[in-house]
């Protein structure tokens, strides 16, 4: 008997033919075992190779919106552009305002608009690289979309992830967004010139950050007033030299 409709299969004919019965589709299982981020990671590896071959130090700068990333970048460029070739990739959901602000400092910048996307990925960055004059001994700042969550998971091929936290945010941000602080190599604690007006416990903040990531380096600075910038520039200088030497080796 037909299990679909209950007819005795030989009994009922339509125009002299047995009526069609659906054959249950045979399903099969495919073992895939691929990382969901595998594609991004493959693009990131390609970017990383490109940076190594060209002797470029690439840094992925991440923070929440309003931490002063772009101001810090503009100030750093103004102070360093006569020492190193600098290029910038700006990531924002909308507008080219940040890239325009960076270009006004006299260095090449490409704006990536992610639309609804909450982070840059390695594929976008790979395309942006085609429009930038990369050279040995140069530094590429990649300013990620302002977001302390998603960008942490997406490798762009950078040498280091740098997280910027400003003292106008809560000191417990590292505990609230542990993935980001865990992924970073360096934390820049910005706007320290405002500390006298705030209830922000610097030591506690650093302790929280190191709880998430014991290897995290921390530099306290003020992008507008200049405190701590020398230490940040020294951190950069060491790594720029290292990146440019790797190409000669």
């Amino acid at each position: 008997m037909c299990s679909d409709c209950g007819c005795g299969t030989d009994e009922i004919t339509i125009d002299g033919r047995l009526h069609a019965h659906a054959v249950p589709e045979a399903s099969r299982r495919l073992r895939v075992e691929v990382d969901l981020l595998a594609k991004n990671n493959a693009y990131a590896a390609r970017n990383r190779t490109r940076f190594a071959e060209q002797g470029v130090l690439a840094l992925n700068l991440m923070s929440s919106p309003g931490s002063g990333k772009t101001s810090l970048l503009a100030r750093s460029i103004a102070d360093l552009k006569n020492q190193y070739p600098i290029t910038v990739i700006e990531g924002d959901q909308q507008t080219a305002r940040d890239a325009e602000r960076i270009r006004a400092t006299g260095v090449a910048a490409v704006q990536i608009n992610t639309g609804k996307g909450c982070h840059l990925d390695a594929h976008m960055v790979g395309h942006a690289l085609d429009d930038l004059p990369l050279s040995a001994g140069s530094v590429l700042f990649i300013e990620n979309v302002g977001n302390l969550v998603c960008p942490a998971a997406f490798d762009l091929g950078e040498a280091h992830k740098v997280v910027i936290l400003s003292v106008t945010e809560g000191e417990d941000k590292p505990l609230k967004y542990p993935d980001m602080f865990h992924a970073a190599d360096l934390m820049l604690l910005n706007k320290i010139d405002l500390l006298p007006y705030l209830q922000f416990d610097v030591e506690q903040c650093i302790a929280y950050a190191r709880q998430v990531n014991p290897r995290l380096e921390v530099i306290q600075l003020s992008a507008t007033q200049g405190a701590g910038l020398a230490q940040w520039y020294q951190w950069l200088a060491q790594r720029i030299v290292h990146a440019s030497h790797s190409v000669e080796a």
Binding site: R29, V32, D35
Partner: peptide, 11 residues
């Protein structure tokens, strides 16, 4: 910290 597509059931 895995985030993997392990298997698909397909027809």
């Amino acid at each position: 910290d895995e985030l993997r597509l392990y298997e698909l059931e397909v027809v």
